[in-house]
């Protein structure tokens, strides 16, 4: 029993990131509201950021900024955390912001067009507007139908 607790304690960051990631995943696949889907995607991304940042951590290490600044003799015994994941995640955060912005803009356009952000309502309205979108399209392929 204590062995299991030790394993969980040594790797509790993975448990946290998996929990957070699955919350986001559930929101993405189970919710019908498009805004909630975007929030789920954001939680999912945050879980991955947390995973990378926790991978870069070293016990007793300081932030990866060289101690002493310019010209100082750098002490060899200072432990720095791993700077590479920080840099990767800085890139990922910017991409996350960009995708979120474009997704929200698309949702605003969808709301203006259909008057709703619920997936069911949008699909129903779309089937009413284009009857060929539903049954016929599934049989013949959407591209062929739109050409007719």
């Amino acid at each position: 029993m204590s062995g299991v607790i030790d394993i969980v304690y040594a790797e509790y960051n993975y448990w946290i990131y998996v929990t957070l990631m699955m919350i986001g995943f559930y929101a993405m696949i189970a919710k019908k509201n498009l805004i909630k889907k975007v929030i789920g995607a954001n939680i999912f991304q945050t879980a991955i950021f947390l995973f990378y940042i926790s991978l870069s951590d070293v016990k007793g290490g300081t932030a990866p900024i060289l101690v002493g600044g310019h010209g100082a003799e750098h002490a060899a015994d200072v432990i720095y955390t791993n700077p590479v994941p920080h840099c990767l995640i800085l890139t990922a955060i910017v991409v996350a912001v960009s995708t979120t912005a474009v997704a929200l803009a698309l949702i605003i356009r969808i709301y203006n067009e259909y008057g709703s952000i619920e997936e069911d309502v949008i699909l129903a309205a779309r089937r009413k507007l284009q009857p060929e979108f539903s049954e016929h399209a599934r049989q013949k392929g959407v591209a062929e139908v739109s050409r007719q």
Partner: peptide, 8 residues
């Protein structure tokens, strides 16, 4: 360049 921070 010399502390926490940056353009973003």
């Amino acid at each position: 360049a010399s502390g926490p921070g940056g353009g973003f």
